[in-house]
C-alpha cells in the first residue's frame, strides 16, 4: 500500500519556475531514486510529495487519492532529512516514539514497537541517550528508526547519507537497501551521487532543471539513455560525445561512446591519437587521448597496459555499444 503518482505537478516560487511539470508513476514497494545536479529541484519535488511544500498546480495521488490539500501529518508518509532533524530535547527513545505518541497508540504498544525498531537498527543500548551524545551514523540510524517505526505508506529520504564519511556511507547504503527490501515499503530517495542511485534503486528518475529526463531501471539508463543529458550524467567517467562526422555516425548528429566500451592498441585501425595523460588505478587505467579526428577522448581499460604520456595509440569503439543522438539530443533507436 503506497503507490504514488504525480500528474502535471508544477512548482514556481514567485516568478521562478522550478518544476515545469512532472509526471511520474511510482509502484507500491519499489525503491525510486531521484538524481540530478545540485539545484535541479529534487528536494522541492520530494517536499511536495511530503506536503511540506504546496504544489503550484497538478495532482499528487497516494494510493489513488489526490493529496495536494492534505497536510503532511495526514499523508501517512515519513521522511528522513539530510540534517537528521532529531528532536534535541528528547532521548533516542523519545525521538523514535514521537510519531506513535502523536498517533495516540497505547504506551505498551509504543514501547514494543520502539524496541523492535531499535533492535533492527542496533540502537538498543543508546535508547536513553540524547541525540547530541551520538555519532553521525547513530543519529542517522535514529532518524531512520523514527521513519520506519510508524509503518508509513512510503519513506522519503533527502540525501540522508551525505553527511557521513565514505566508508560509513557504503555501509548505511546497504543497510537502507536491505531494510527497504525487508519491509517492502515504497521509498523515494534523493541523491546527487550516481553510485548511490545505481546501487540502491529499482528505478531511477533523472532530473534536469526540474524536468524528468528519463525514468527507468539503472541498467536501462546505462544501456539505453534516452538523451544526451542522461547519457552524460550516468556513468563514470563520462561518456565521450563525438560531434565531428566519422564513419560511425550513420546519420546521427552526435554519437556517444562510453570510456569502457573502447579497445586500445598501439597499432591497427581505429581513431589514432596521442596519450595526453594516464591514470593508473591498478585495477583500471584511465587514458586521456588527444585525437586529431574527433577531439579529446577518455578511455577506461581494465588492468595495466603499460601505456604512458606521449604514446600513440589506436582507439576502436565497440560497434554494438555506440549511442546515437539526433540534433535535439534525443537518442535514435
Amino acid at each position: 500500500m503506497g503507490s504514488i503518482t504525480l500528474q502535471d505537478v508544477r512548482k514556481a516560487f514567485g516568478p521562478h519556475v522550478v518544476i515545469p511539470g512532472a509526471n511520474l508513476q511510482i509502484e507500491d514497494g519499489s525503491f525510486v531514486v531521484f538524481v540530478g545536479a545540485s539545484g535541479c529541484g529534487k528536494t522541492t519535488l520530494l517536499r511536495m510529495i511530503a506536503g511540506l511544500e504546496d504544489v503550484t498546480s497538478g495532482r499528487i495521488m497516494i494510493d489513488g487519492a489526490n493529496v495536494v490539500d492534505v497536510p503532511p501529518a495526514r499523508r501517512g508518509l515519513s521522511m528522513v532529512f539530510q540534517s537528521y532533524a532529531l528532536y534535541p530535547h528528547m532521548s533516542v527513545r523519545g525521538n523514535i516514539a514521537f510519531g506513535l505518541k502523536m498517533a495516540g497508540l497505547p504506551r505498551p504498544e509504543i514501547d514494543r514497537k520502539v524496541d523492535a525498531a531499535a533492535a533492527i537498527l542496533n540502537l538498543t543500548s543508546y535508547l536513553d541517550r540524547k541525540p547530541r551524545e551520538l555519532s553521525g551514523g547513530q543519529r542517522q540510524r535514529v532518524a531512520i528508526g523514527r521513519a520506519i517505526v510508524r509503518e508509513p505508506k512510503a519513506f522519503l529520504f533527502d540525501e540522508p547519507l551525505s553527511n557521513l564519511d565514505a566508508a560509513l556511507r557504503v555501509q548505511m547504503r546497504q543497510e537502507v537497501t536491505r531494510l527497504q527490501r525487508q519491509l517492502k515499503t515504497t521509498a523515494i530517495y534523493v541523491t546527487h551521487d550516481q553510485v548511490e542511485a545505481m546501487t540502491m534503486a529499482d528505478r531511477i528518475v533523472v532530473l534536469n532543471a526540474g524536468s524528468i529526463e528519463q525514468y527507468g531501471t539503472p541498467l536501462e539508463l546505462y544501456e539505453r539513455p534516452a538523451n544526451l543529458f542522461v547519457a552524460g550524467f550516468i556513468g563514470s567517467p563520462r561518456m565521450n560525445m563525438i560531434e565531428r562526422e566519422t564513419e560511425q555516425h550513420r546519420g546521427a548528429a552526435t554519437i556517444g561512446v562510453r570510456p569502457e566500451h573502447m579497445t586500445v592498441s598501439r597499432d591497427g585501425d581505429g581513431w589514432s591519437g596521442t596519450v595526453r595523460a594516464a591514470e593508473h588505478l591498478g585495477s583500471d587505467t584511465f587514458l586521456y587521448v588527444d585525437t586529431p579526428e574527433i577531439g579529446s577522448i577518455t578511455v577506461r581499460c581494465v588492468g595495466e597496459l603499460g601505456l604512458g604520456e606521449g604514446d600513440s595509440v589506436r582507439l576502436r569503439p565497440d560497434p554494438t555499444r555506440i549511442h546515437r543522438f539526433d540534433k535535439s539530443g534525443t537518442a535514435i533507436r
Binding site: A50, G51, L52, P71, P72, A73, R74, L77, S78, M79, F81, S83, A85, L86, Y87, P88, H89, F98, G99, M102, A103, R146, R150
Partner: peptide
C-alpha cells in the same frame, strides 16, 4: 531553531498545536 525539526514533527503526525507544545517550546 532549525525549521527541519519542526517539519520532522509535522511528518511525524503532529498538529500545529502539538508541534508548538512538544517541539518548539521545549527547544
Amino acid at each position: 531553531i532549525p525549521k527541519d525539526i519542526l517539519e520532522a514533527s509535522r511528518m511525524d503526525g503532529a498538529t500545529i498545536g502539538r508541534e508548538l507544545v512538544y517541539v518548539l517550546t521545549p527547544m
